[in-house]
Structures are given as structure tokens and as C-alpha cells.
């Protein structure tokens, strides 16, 4: 278990930057409330994963190279997404293998934490639930579950909230069908997967859907909104911040 740092870097991810900035703000506030200073390098953009998953490795590396330069200090890099964290932690070492800046990439990769992992394992955060009773369904992203191996962290955070009842959809571990560019390249298959995911989540009669990846939430949430009568969805950071008082 890593020692508690004084300061961390925060990598907000491009999806959160553009679509869910409140999740990014909440994540940082949660960390700051624990007495940890947060640095947000303003030059950050995207981890490079879309190009990496499309086979455009040179382009992915160009973008990734601009990111690794932003995290020189030997402190954790916290990312509110299993997918982007997985890109940096698991795939940067592959992407930079035999490159002149391989050591720098490995150094950053070794300091990457997904947000819920950081809150639970490093900060050992203790949460006090101040919210009304609510039924929550969790969608764990495949990258959080399989690549980062941190699926249990979001559960343990929610488990600390006394008024939150977790309900579980069937086939919880199955992908939501987003897959980044997959949703664009194979829209019919992606649609068929997300519609089943929505059905299973609706069946839980949850009041809220939470997750640690904006991509999945945008996919599942968007499908529910299209149908109407959507179960509101929220990034786990935003949900935790709201439930625990939301004061810095």
C-alpha cells in the first residue's frame, strides 16, 4: 500500500473535460478534503487511447508523449476513469517499448491510480453519508474490472454510505457496448448491447446509476434518455461528493 502523499497530479480525461466536468471537480474536491494538494496540469489533453485502440500507434504516442511530460514529480497521477488509467498504466509501457522515452513512460505508468482505487487504497477515505435513502445500481467499466482490477473499490466506497442501498443488475460484469470507437464503427452491435444493459439496470428499479467511467455512463445514460424516463446517472466522484456534504 502506497504511503499517503502530500500532493498528487490529477488527469481529468478528455470525456470528463468536455462532458462531465463536474465529475472532475468533485473528484479533486474529494481528494483535497482529505488534506492532499492537487495539481492539475493545464496542458493535459487526452491519454491517446482512441488512436491506440484504432491501431494508430504513432498518433497515440504523439499524444501520450505530450501527457507524460506533464507529470515529472514522483507523486501519484490520479485519474477518474478506469479506461484512461488503464491506458496509462497498462498500455503506455507497450506503446513506449523501445522508444527513447520508455523510462519516462514507465515511471508515469507506475504512479497511475484510478480514482476509486486511490481513495480506498491510498487515502483510506472514510465517508459519512448525509443524503436521503437511495437505491443505486453500479456499472463497473470493463477496464476498471479487468485491466485495472479495481472493481471492488467503488463497491467498498458505496458500502460506507449508510443510506445507500446497492441493487445489482444481472450480468453486471458484462460490457455496456461502448468500447470507444467501437460504438461508432459497429453501431448496430453496440446498440444491441447497450439496450440489454439498460433493460437489466431498469429491472433493478434503482434511483440512480453510478460508475467510474464517463464513457460507459454516456453510453448507458444516453440510451436511457433516448427511451425517456431515464434513471439519472452520475460519475462516482460527483455522487460521493454530493452524499458527503459537498463542502471543501
Amino acid at each position: 500500500m502506497a504511503t499517503r502523499p502530500d500532493t498528487i497530479y490529477f488527469f481529468g480525461t478528455c470525456l470528463i473535460d468536455l462532458m462531465y466536468p463536474q465529475a472532475g471537480v468533485s473528484a479533486m474536491q474529494l481528494i483535497q478534503r482529505e488534506g492532499v494538494n492537487v495539481i492539475f496540469p493545464q496542458a493535459q489533453t487526452c491519454c491517446g487511447q482512441p488512436a491506440w485502440n484504432s491501431g494508430y500507434r504513432d498518433e497515440a504516442r504523439t499524444v501520450a508523449r505530450a501527457q507524460i511530460a506533464l507529470f515529472p514529480k514522483p507523486i501519484p497521477v490520479v485519474i477518474p476513469s478506469g479506461s484512461c488509467a488503464g491506458m496509462m498504466k497498462v498500455h503506455y509501457p507497450e506503446l513506449f517499448a523501445n522508444q527513447p522515452d520508455e523510462a519516462q513512460a514507465l515511471d508515469v505508468a507506475g504512479r497511475v491510480y484510478e480514482l476509486t482505487e486511490f481513495l480506498v487504497d491510498v487515502l483510506q477515505i472514510e465517508l459519512k453519508d448525509l443524503g436521503e435513502p437511495v437505491k443505486v445500481a453500479v456499472h463497473t467499466s470493463c477496464s476498471s474490472r479487468r485491466e485495472m482490477g479495481v472493481a471492488d473499490k467503488i463497491e467498498s466506497l458505496l458500502g460506507q454510505l449508510s443510506n445507500v442501498k446497492r441493487v445489482e443488475q444481472i450480468r453486471k460484469a458484462e460490457c455496456c457496448g461502448f468500447g470507444g470507437t467501437f460504438a461508432v464503427k459497429q453501431p448496430e452491435i453496440s446498440a444491441s448491447i447497450v439496450l440489454e444493459k439498460v433493460e437489466t439496470i431498469r429491472a433493478t428499479q434503482a434511483d440512480r446509476l453510478v460508475g467510474q467511467d464517463a464513457g460507459c455512463l454516456m453510453n448507458i445514460g444516453g440510451a436511457m434518455e433516448k427511451q425517456g424516463d431515464a434513471i439519472p446517472h452520475q460519475h462516482i466522484a460527483e455522487f460521493l461528493w454530493e452524499r458527503t456534504g459537498g463542502v471543501a
Binding site: P21, Q42, E225
Partner: peptide, 15 residues
């Protein structure tokens, strides 16, 4: 799905 909703301000700007 509904169209993705872009935020009014990016995380960069808010921070």
C-alpha cells in the same frame, strides 16, 4: 441514444 451533452465550461476552464 440521446446526443452527448457538451458541458458549458470544460474542466480546464472550471479549475
Amino acid at each position: 441514444r440521446s446526443a452527448p451533452q457538451l458541458a458549458e465550461q470544460t474542466l480546464h476552464e472550471r479549475l
